[in-house]
Computed example of a mutant assay.
Amino acid sequence: MGLIYALGAYLSWGIVVPVHFRLLDSVPAGSILAHRIVWSSVLVVGLLAILRRRVRNPFPLRRRHLLLVVSAGLIAVNWLLYLVAVQSGHMLDASLGYFINPLMSVALGALVLGERLRPVQAVAVGLAAAGVILAVVLAGHLPWLSLTLAASFSLYGLVRKVVGVDAMVGFAAETFLLLPAAGLYLVLAAPAVVNGDPVRLGLLLLTGATTALPLIWFAAAAQRLTLSTLGLMQYLAPSCLLGLSVLVYGERLEPHRLVLFVLIWLALALYAADSFRAARRTKEPPEPAAAGPDRPGMRSF
């Protein structure tokens, strides 16, 4: 079941969510974001009521829980940028951002949390940085959208790690924090987007499901699969997004982007291989110590 949950989450993020948002092309990104927050809040209330016995209670609240305000802001920025990328025909930029994201998270872990990088991991991060620099030289400009998507989600992951709250509770807190602004925007500032169209209304209502369900499936997969397996599967979503952008929506893979993708894929392959090898090494039972020549049966230290 863990594999099924993971496939459901990553295929949703890579195929279902972008196609869903492209069907809402005529709706401004800000309105979609506000609807996404409102209907996610409604859905998460129901889920908390159903799963209340499985959710870890965050009380008593700690000072670090105030960081959920920061994580809410970061995920809202990430959602909005993703919507803009998909609706404006820049799925390639979104795909690249989510390819860069794991490597940026590794770098943040080393710089902020003091996590030590293994030599191969350091080479992988260096390759990714070299790819960005080379792409800038070839194109003459920074891939701002990709880098901002990667940075916002990497920082979001860092904050959520520091907060250390249950995934469902954290998601609920973030949506509830964003709910007043989303509600006010829909009531006071958002243009009329439904206009009696039941299909469009249904698509807007479904934004709650396509936001919350993949996150729940991901959490379920994380409980059942090894971290190395889950880590390797995370590249399925941006790979699907890349194929969708080029094969279905006709985006052009320009030479500087191709160079950058090749270097990112090489960096990810090195990182994944190193993570897989490290995971296997930790699972191997320690070899029995050889008996010493002078004291048979005793371990040598």
Results as ranks from 00 to 15, higher is better:
residue 198 P to F: 08
residue 264 I to K: 01
residue 286 P to Q: 13
residue 205 L to H: 05
residue 190 A to K: 06
residue 192 A to N: 14
residue 177 L to E: 10
residue 205 L to D: 08
residue 185 Y to P: 01
residue 213 L to R: 01
residue 268 L to M: 15
residue 265 W to L: 15
residue 230 L to G: 08
residue 204 L to H: 05
residue 220 A to M: 10
residue 212 A to W: 00
residue 178 L to V: 10
residue 285 P to W: 04
residue 266 L to K: 07
residue 286 P to G: 14
residue 169 V to Y: 09
residue 196 G to W: 10
residue 192 A to M: 14
residue 172 A to E: 05
residue 231 G to M: 07
residue 280 R to L: 05
residue 232 L to E: 11
residue 237 A to H: 03
residue 265 W to H: 14
residue 218 F to N: 02
residue 249 Y to V: 00
residue 230 L to V: 03
residue 267 A to I: 03
residue 170 G to A: 05
residue 236 L to W: 02
residue 291 A to N: 05
residue 222 A to C: 01
residue 292 G to Y: 04
residue 234 Q to M: 05
residue 226 T to Y: 06
residue 195 N to F: 07
residue 248 V to P: 02
residue 251 E to C: 07
residue 217 W to K: 01
residue 227 L to C: 04
residue 177 L to N: 07
residue 214 P to M: 08
residue 238 P to S: 12
residue 172 A to M: 09
residue 255 P to S: 13
residue 177 L to P: 05
residue 236 L to E: 10
residue 209 A to Y: 05
residue 281 R to T: 08
residue 249 Y to Q: 00
residue 291 A to S: 15
residue 277 R to A: 15
residue 288 P to S: 03
residue 292 G to W: 04
residue 238 P to Y: 04
residue 280 R to A: 13
residue 259 V to Y: 05
residue 217 W to R: 02
residue 288 P to L: 07
residue 255 P to E: 12
residue 274 D to Q: 11
residue 185 Y to K: 03
residue 170 G to F: 01
residue 287 E to W: 00
residue 180 P to C: 12
residue 259 V to P: 02
residue 178 L to Y: 01
residue 234 Q to A: 08
residue 227 L to Y: 09
residue 242 L to F: 03
residue 183 G to L: 11
residue 257 R to H: 13
residue 172 A to V: 06
residue 234 Q to E: 09
residue 204 L to I: 12
residue 170 G to W: 03
residue 268 L to F: 09
residue 239 S to V: 01
residue 207 T to N: 04
residue 268 L to K: 08
residue 183 G to R: 00
residue 232 L to G: 15
residue 170 G to V: 04
residue 279 A to Y: 07
residue 223 Q to C: 06
residue 189 A to Q: 14
residue 292 G to D: 13
residue 180 P to Q: 12
residue 273 A to R: 15
residue 283 K to M: 15
residue 216 I to S: 00
residue 189 A to E: 13
residue 256 H to R: 04
residue 238 P to I: 07
residue 244 L to G: 05
residue 262 V to L: 15
residue 208 G to N: 06
residue 238 P to F: 04
residue 202 G to V: 11
residue 239 S to L: 03
residue 202 G to M: 10
residue 224 R to W: 00
residue 217 W to P: 03
residue 216 I to G: 02
residue 273 A to D: 14
residue 174 E to W: 03
residue 251 E to M: 08
residue 205 L to K: 04
residue 193 V to G: 08
residue 286 P to N: 10
residue 271 Y to W: 13
residue 216 I to A: 02
residue 274 D to Y: 06
residue 194 V to Q: 04
residue 175 T to P: 02
